[in-house]
Simulated assay, not measured.
Amino acid sequence: MKGVHLPIATLAIFALATFLVSASDPSPLQDFCVAINNAQFSQFPGVFVNGKFCKDPKLATANDFFFSGLQIPKSTANAVGSTVTAANVEQIAGLNTLGISLARIDYAPNGGLNPPHTHPRASEVLLVLEGTLYVGFVTSNPDNKLISKVLNKGDVFVFPVGLIHFQLNIGPVNAVAIAALSSQNPGVSP
Rank of each mutant, 00 (worst) to 15 (best):
T97Q: 10
S68L: 08
A175Q: 09
A79I: 15
T85G: 04
H5T: 14
I105R: 08
F53C: 03
P160T: 12
R104E: 05
N152I: 06
V156M: 14
A17G: 04
K58Y: 01
N185K: 03
V34S: 06
T139G: 06
T97E: 01
F159G: 08
I72L: 09
N96D: 02
A39M: 12
H117T: 06
L29K: 15
R121W: 08
Q167F: 08
A122T: 12
D25H: 14
T10E: 09
P28F: 08
F137C: 07
Q167I: 06
L11G: 06
N78A: 13
A15K: 06
N141H: 11
S75R: 11
F14K: 04
A87W: 00
G99C: 04
N169E: 01
I13K: 03
A177N: 07
Q71A: 12
V21K: 11
P28N: 15
K52G: 00
G99K: 05
A9D: 07
N174L: 06
S183L: 06
N63R: 11
A177E: 07
Y107N: 11
L6A: 14
E130G: 03
F137W: 05
L127I: 14
I164E: 02
I147V: 15
V138L: 08
S182C: 08
E124F: 01
P190T: 12
S82C: 07
Q40N: 13
N169K: 09
L181S: 09
K52Q: 10
V188A: 13
T18D: 13
T97N: 01
P57G: 05
S27D: 14
I164S: 08
A87M: 02
P160I: 05
G112M: 09
V173W: 04
I100P: 03
N144D: 01
L133A: 03
Q43R: 11
A179E: 05
G46T: 11
L20H: 04
I92C: 00
I105V: 15
D56W: 02
P172N: 14
